[in-house]
Every structure is written in structure tokens, then in C-alpha cells.
Design a protein around this nucleic acid. Structure first.
Lengths: 145, 145
DNA sequence: TCCCAGGAGTTGATACGTCAACTCTAACTT
DNA sequence: AAGTTAGAGTTGACGTATCAACTCCTGGGA
């Protein structure tokens, strides 16, 4: 396996730096506009219907302990509640509170505006196509759980 | 400002997921092969010459407290040492130990192989060009500090 | 019925990143 | 020379992610 050339490293490090800057910018926006982290936003966005904790973890592709910890914190802040999942099963379910729903809607608008402004509106069609095909190929290859 | 369409969200979430999967894969590789985190790798890679902590923070574009904390942990593990910066200045400098240099070389090879395998070798020239131009534009726009 | 194997979820320890407060020194002011 | 200010670096508190250990069902055997 050939080593990476200095150009390879430069390309790679530039890419990673761009991604870090972008993520930081969007995180700050979410925190500023809605007072939540990106992780909390993902939960709010995914948890449109009541579900089991495991489903949520699967959809997010996160470890379940990460989900459990985050849910605990969000429960303290009144964004989600743990419920008994009906329908025969006896395990714990999770759902958004009214406040959680409100915040989810607000955050989706605010974050969407930021994403559009910082990313989508600046992407040429070529860039978007390249990124999409790359993403799909990678998820296909690495993402099988 | 127009809202994001469902396609926009799908594109965006796919992209972010791909990036998360890739980052996780590379992190695990670095941890498995060399016992260090990606952040530690960045320090090892940047700290080729003795320098001041501030320079290191600037090059990495990290907060200085993050650098200070990480250096403290790496110092405990014998990878770096704090030194007095000579040359008139009286501030503290930082440099790699012999062990740090060894590990830096080893990790560069190992991580480079992973990056090549998971990323560079799978990128079409079009994709690489699109990603590079996007990265540069974004750094230009957001990265001015 | 009792035991046990396994899945779902939680918890605690530890590592890491961020923010704000702090220390130390050098340079500037009077 | 004393007081002030600004920059560099460190520290502590807090929120968060990961890993491993744990609890609590539930569904089989025997």
C-alpha cells in the first residue's frame, strides 16, 4: 500500500478542516437560535412519533448508551418523556412533550435556514452531485450494521 | 429565506451521516493501530518542531484551552514535554519526546493507509475536484479568524 | 415451578471539548 | 518605581461521548 503524498495529505486536511469549520458554524447557530446542541436537534427531528429507545438509537445510528444519557438530560429539561410502550410490549417508550414539538419545529426552520445559507445555496450542481454520490457509496460500504 | 425541501434535508442528512461514518471508522483505526485519538494524531503531526503553545493552537485552529488540556494528558503519557522557549522570550514551549516522534511516524503511516483505503482510492477525479473546490471556498469564507 | 439465557435499557467511570475565570509576565504610563 | 493593561497559558466546572458493567424483564427448557 503506497504512502500518501504531501498533496494527498494537503487535500485530506483541507477537506477535514472545511468540514470542521462548517460543523462549528452550524452548531453555534443552533445553540444561539434555539439553545440546543446538534445532537439534541437530531433527537428532536427523529422523534416525530413516540417510539422505543432502541428504534431511536437505530435510526440515529448511535450507541444506545449515548441515547440514554442524552434522553435523561432532555427529560430533565422537559423536552421528552419516558412512557410505557403499550401494545403488548412492556418496555419503556419515549416521546416528545408539547414543548419538545414546539422546539423541534422552530429548530428545524432555524437550522434549515442556516444550512441553506452556508451550504446548499453555495454548492454548484457539480459539487452537489459529487458529494451525493460519494456519500451514498460510503454509506453503502461502511454503514451496514 | 425559503425553507428546505424534503430532498434538501435528505441530501444534507445523507452527507452528514456519511461523514460521521467515515470519521468513526478512521478514529477506530487510529485507536486500534496506535492507541491515540484523532486529536492526538493532529498534535503529533503538527508538532514536528518545538513551538509555542499558541502557534500550535493557531495551526490547528483550536481553542488554546483545548490544546492546553490535551497537552497535559499527552505529557502524562510521555509524548510531549513542556520546555522554556529560549531566544529572549520567557514563555513556555512545547515539543515531542523521542517516543512522540516515533509514534508520530508510525501513526502517519498507519492512518495514511486507512485514509487512502477508505477515501482517496475510492474517489473519482471529478469527486475529488468538486470536494476540493468546495473545501477551499468554505475555508476562505468561514475560516478567517 | 425453577433456572437460565438473552435482549433492552440504564448507570458509572473516564476521556474530551468549551467556557469563563485565573495567573504570570512584559510593556506602557505617569 | 508603582499602577495599569494586554497577551499567553493554565485551570476548574460543566456538558457530552464511549465503554463496560449492571438491572430487569421475558421466554424457553428441565
Amino acid at each position: 500500500m503506497a504512502d500518501m503524498s504531501p498533496e494527498d495529505w494537503a487535500f485530506w486536511e483541507t477537506w477535514m478542516r472545511a468540514h470542521r469549520l462548517l460543523a462549528g458554524e452550524l452548531d453555534r447557530g443552533l445553540q444561539r437560535d434555539c439553545g440546543i446542541s446538534k445532537a439534541e436537534f437530531s433527537v428532536l427531528r427523529t422523534l416525530r412519533h413516540p417510539m422505543r429507545v432502541g428504534e431511536l438509537a437505530d435510526e440515529l445510528a448511535w450507541e444506545k448508551s449515548r441515547v440514554a444519557h442524552l434522553l435523561t438530560r432532555m427529560e430533565k429539561r422537559g423536552l421528552v418523556t419516558r412512557t410505557e410502550a403499550g401494545a403488548g410490549g412492556r418496555r419503556t417508550g419515549i416521546e416528545l412533550t408539547a414543548e419538545g414539538h414546539r422546539l423541534a419545529a422552530r429548530a428545524t426552520r432555524a437550522h434549515g435556514a442556516n444550512v441553506r445559507q452556508h451550504v446548499l445555496d453555495r454548492l454548484t450542481p457539480d459539487q452537489a452531485a459529487a458529494i451525493q454520490s460519494w456519500s451514498e457509496e460510503l454509506i453503502e460500504r461502511v454503514g451496514q450494521v
